[in-house]
């Protein structure tokens, strides 16, 4: 296993406490476990506020997790001091959703991509330049574009720059946080194909965070569905899409609009609002929106269980 995450938790301090009355912490991630194999992609799906981005950042220690363990290539990095962590950062990188805020507007594209090389001791200018040029070409940009500023690129090209920066140090794992969500449909395909090609060439692993089920199905080998800080279903992609077991996964799949007017039919859609992690329902977090909820769901937390080989579900009714 390249990455093993066990019972990861992240609580943020709550707000609004008065004089000595400590407010309840916000449970952004509440006991999440998964693993990613070398050269594979785990898709992490969920709606806003489910904690999927916090998971991605915690793994890279951009956010310090509250509890749990993260093992990368067998080493526990959960509490690794930042000096040692620095070296490991070569091996795990991140690509963000927003192609605008992810690049410093005042730096040239070539310098942005070369930055990781500089930080990790590639001192020689010519060598750095050559490597940057190779990276540009690898992600489908022209070397001549190295001297341009970010605003001179389109959204898709900027995402390619972000990917080139992430690739610079030859990582094993890339956390991709909604990498195509801000892009136009026609450009999405370019970036998805690029990421999949790179995976094959470099034996890369991805933690692919997205709210878009169709994209996740397309790129992932395994899928984990999150709801309010917990994983409610976790299985191989084919299995989970063919036979989703958790009522939330089923509802999510029913809600995705399909580009297929021939099969248009009015489906039963989930009611209620996406709840916030500040105010979590008791018992199964999903029960207020669940069409199948029973008394037990209102009081008792369902634990993730393996219902068949390699298929985990956290639901009393499955």
């Amino acid at each position: 296993m390249l990455l093993e995450v066990n019972d990861l938790r992240k609580y943020f301090p709550g707000r609004g406490g008065f004089f000595g009355k400590t407010p309840d912490p916000v449970h952004a991630i509440d006991g999440v476990s998964f693993a990613i194999q070398e050269g594979k992609t785990l898709g992490l799906v969920g709606e806003s506020g489910c904690g999927k981005s916090t998971v991605g950042r915690s793994i890279l220690r951009l956010i310090e997790p509250t509890a749990g363990t993260i093992r990368f290539e067998g080493t526990d990095i959960t509490r690794m001091p930042s000096k040692e962590m620095r070296n490991l950062r070569k091996r795990m990188q991140i690509v963000f959703q927003d192609p605008y805020s992810s690049l410093n507007p005042r730096r040239r594209a070539g310098d942005i991509v070369a930055e990781p090389l500089l930080v990790h001791g590639v001192e020689n200018r010519t060598e750095r330049r050559a490597k940057t040029q190779a990276l540009f070409e690898r992600v489908g940009l022209r070397a001549a574009q190295m001297d341009l500023y970010p605003h001179q690129f389109s959204g898709g090209q900027r995402q390619r720059i972000s990917i080139a920066r992430a690739l610079a140090l030859g990582p094993k794992l890339i956390v991709a946080d909604e990498p195509v969500s801000a892009l136009d449909v026609s450009v999405q395909a370019q970036v998805i194909n690029l990421m999949m090609d790179l995976q094959e060439q470099e034996k890369l692993s991805y933690l692919f965070i997205s709210h878009n089920l169709a994209v996740v199905e397309h790129v992932s080998h395994q899928v984990a569905v999150m709801y309010l800080g917990r994983i409610v279903e976790y299985a191989a992609t084919k299995r989970i899409f063919e036979r989703p077991l958790h009522p939330y996964t089923q509802a999510l799949m029913a809600a995705v609009p399909m580009p297929d007017p021939a099969n248009r039919r009015r489906k039963q859609h989930l009611g209620g609002d996406v709840p916030s992690p500040v105010n979590r329902p008791k018992g199964c977090h999903f029960h207020p929106r669940c069409p199948l909820a029973q008394e037990r769901c209102r009081v008792e937390d369902p634990m993730p269980r393996e219902v068949e080989a390699g298929h985990q579900v956290a639901c009393h009714l499955v």
């Binding site: 389109s154 395909a189 194909n193 169709a214 994209v215 199905e217 397309h218």
Partner: peptide, 23 residues
């Protein structure tokens, strides 16, 4: 045609067709 071929669809795991370039 390009747009329709570039969107991933659940249950159709083939390589996405790209529209080259940008708007």
């Amino acid at each position: 045609q390009g747009l329709l071929n570039s969107v991933p669809r659940v249950g159709q795991p083939k390589r996405l067709q790209e529209i080259a370039g940008t708007v």
